[in-house]
């Protein structure tokens, strides 16, 4: 492995791990379920995509292995993680979970 490919892989790895850590801190610190879901579904998705891209580059550079499973995994996470976040958030709203008491706007309140 050349030095520059190692640097690129390390950059992707550290970015992905940092974004996963940021997602976990958001899930701990934010006040209600909707903001926590916002943190978890966006940041963790980008983090796992960065790490899978680093894995793909690692095996491509080191072994010459073009792993289409990893590309498929990146595409799958990019499609399904926001959908899962949307479904949980909608289920939470419809089952009556309260928003944060300092929230100012609820567009769905008079739709029912």
């Amino acid at each position: 492995m050349t030095v520059i490919s190692e640097i690129v892989i390390a950059l992707f790895l550290l970015t992905g791990a940092f974004l996963s850590l940021v997602a976990a801190f958001g899930v701990i610190r934010l006040p209600d379920v909707y903001t926590r879901n916002h943190a978890a579904s966006k940041s963790a998705t980008l983090g796992v995509m960065c790490i899978l891209l680093a894995t793909f580059l690692y095996f491509l550079v080191k072994d010459g292995l073009f792993s289409s499973r990893l590309l498929l995994g990146i595409a799958f996470f990019f499609i399904t993680a926001p959908v899962a976040g949307h479904l949980i958030s909608r289920a939470a709203y419809n089952s009556g979970v309260k928003m944060w008491d300092q929230s100012v706007r609820d567009d769905l309140k008079d739709k029912k």
Partner: peptide, 15 residues
């Protein structure tokens, strides 16, 4: 939400 994020994290750890 926490379980879903744990699944995503587990994928990163496996990679």
């Amino acid at each position: 939400v926490a379980l879903d994020a744990m699944g995503v994290n587990l994928v990163s750890m496996t990679a």
